[in-house]
């Protein structure tokens, strides 16, 4: 089972979250991601990209639509599936 970072996916792709807070040393930030719904086992889907370089992303997770940059999305590891 190979994992990818959420920030590497493009619009329409989705994956099951397996790890939150990869390479992040800020506990506050990780907890914030989790409280907003980025939790292991939940499904994250890239729904939109902003203009001019495709950053930030709009990601659907646990029924809500969240905006974050690719760099931040890279702290989330997913197993991609169709």
């Amino acid at each position: 089972m190979t994992t990818v970072r959420l920030g590497q996916l493009s619009v329409g792709q989705r994956g099951v979250i397996v790890r939150v807070g990869v390479g992040s040393d800020s506990v506050d930030w990780v907890q914030r991601l989790m409280a907003m719904g980025f939790l292991e086992g939940s499904i994250a889907e890239i729904v939109h990209e902003a203009p001019f370089g495709g950053d930030p992303l709009a990601v659907r997770v646990r029924g809500s639509l969240l905006a974050l940059r690719r760099q931040e999305a890279n702290a989330i590891e997913v197993v991609q599936y169709e």
Partner: peptide, 11 residues
Amino acid sequence: PKPMLLMELPT
């Protein structure tokens, strides 16, 4: 550092 972005796009 560049500020982080995490915000909800509500229905």
